[in-house]
């Protein structure tokens, strides 16, 4: 028991972040109209592309003679970038159309 409590105490800032983010995530999109479900999903999809940061770190730390890490890291950077760039671009294209409507 003390073991678990120690672990909680040691990582309390993480635990706070996770708990607060869960509530925030739910709160922030709580009242979304169904019209926006698809763009919202697409936008959220782009945001989790933040995993690219991990890919960049992996790539940047890879030793020059560690080919497995180099190749996998390189692939990860490509895929992560695809997620980010593609995700935001697709979302923008969907929303572009909503905006045109409003302007008229």
């Amino acid at each position: 028991m003390t073991h678990i409590l120690d672990a909680i105490a040691a990582h309390q800032d993480y635990i706070y972040i996770v708990v607060l983010m869960i509530f925030l995530g739910i709160e922030v999109i709580g009242r979304v109209p169904s019209v926006l479900h698809t763009p919202l999903m697409s936008g959220a999809n782009a945001i989790h592309g933040v995993v690219i940061i991990g890919a960049i770190i992996v790539m940047g730390k890879a030793e020059p003679d560690n080919y497995v890490a180099l190749v996998l890291g390189f692939l990860a950077v490509i895929l992560g970038t695809l997620n980010v760039v593609g995700g935001f671009a697709v979302t923008d294209r969907m929303l572009e159309m909503f905006k045109n409507k409003k302007a008229k």
């Binding site: 983010m21 509530f23 925030l24 995530g25 739910i26 922030v28 979304v32 919202l40 959220a44 933040v50």
Partner: peptide, 13 residues
């Protein structure tokens, strides 16, 4: 934050 945010919002969505 980005990951958990999407995880929570995605679940609600």
């Amino acid at each position: 934050t980005g990951g958990i945010l999407v995880g929570a919002a995605g679940t609600l969505l």
